[in-house]
């Protein structure tokens, strides 16, 4: 496992695109949190701001994990670029020719996704701790809603799992990015909208990406909570659906890579 990750590190450490995307991602997260916490960025009128500026430990995890989620697509795009590059330059073949088993190539990519998920979650944790302390909270209160960090980690695995699976099947960078963006934004929103019709049940809550997005809902201030749908699925059902999707991506990708030609 360590050896696989060491080789993935050799591949990315000199890849400028990775560092530009990572900097953009982390920069956007910090910027949004700062703008909202300081109420420089507000949304609404007549003295009402629906952006929650509670960055004490009672609300910091709701805010920081949501805004990390909002930009998680950039990390998924990075996974697509790193994986489809291997197909474009046939380095996936070279890795196997040099002696990797096909499953080692596959697991190296999943390990990369796990590490990315952990790094982003840790960054969000550090951001939350700093904001919480700067807003006068006591560390002893830091446990309020801290489960949201775990949910964020699961969401990142889910989003990156979608990206990885698309990359394994489509193999072309541009095509995989377009399909990912089309699915992640208009298509899932359409499905979610359809599901609000009682005749179609609640399936929209459990579409591939929404099943994790539901774990990190928009952090409305208490006064605006009325905007949420009345009958939301529980966190545990969202979590179970997310884990099932992650397991499905793992098995589907493994089947694809172990069978057939490269």
């Amino acid at each position: 496992m360590k050896a696989l990750l060491a080789i993935e590190w050799l591949k990315i450490k000199r890849y400028r695109t990775v560092w530009v995307l990572t900097s953009l991602f982390l920069g956007f997260i910090l910027l949004f949190n700062i703008l909202i916490a300081t109420e420089t960025l507000t949304l609404g009128g007549k003295g009402i701001n629906i952006l929650n500026s509670d960055y004490t430990f009672s609300g910091v995890w709701l805010n920081t994990t949501y805004w990390t989620k909002a930009f998680a697509g950039l990390i998924a795009l990075m996974v697509i670029i790193l994986t489809t590059n291997e197909y474009q330059y046939r380095t996936n073949r070279q890795n196997v020719i040099d002696g990797w088993q096909r499953s080692q190539f596959f697991h190296a990519k999943w390990l990369l996704v796990l590490v990315l998920g952990m790094v982003v979650t840790l960054f969000t944790f550090a951001t939350g701790i700093i904001f919480g302390l700067l807003n006068g909270s006591s560390l002893s209160d830091a446990g309020t809603h801290i489960e949201k960090l775990f949910y964020l980690f699961i969401l990142l695995l889910n989003y990156c799992g979608v990206a990885l699976t698309l990359s394994f099947f489509l193999k072309r960078t541009g095509l995989a990015i377009v399909i990912f963006i089309l699915y992640a934004y208009p298509l899932e929103n359409i499905l979610w909208g359809i599901s609000l019709n009682p005749n179609y049940g609640n399936f929209g809550f459990f579409t591939p990406m929404e099943s994790s997005a539901g774990l990190l809902m928009f952090p409305f201030p208490p006064a605006a909570k009325e905007a949420l749908p009345k009958h939301m699925p529980s966190d545990s059902s969202y979590l179970a659906a997310s884990l099932a999707y992650i397991a499905f991506y793992y098995l589907l990708g493994r089947w694809k890579l172990l069978k057939g030609d490269w």
């Binding site: 050896a3 060491a6 080789i7 050799l10 591949k11 000199r14 890849y15 400028r16 695109t17 590059n85 330059y89 046939r90 380095t91 073949r93 070279q94 890795n95 020719i97 040099d98």
Partner: peptide
């Protein structure tokens, strides 16, 4: 088949690893 953004020397490091 090599990583286009890396040097020849660094590419061989991956093969060697």
């Amino acid at each position: 088949n090599f990583y286009h953004y890396m040097s020849g020397y660094d590419n061989l490091a991956i093969s060697a690893a």
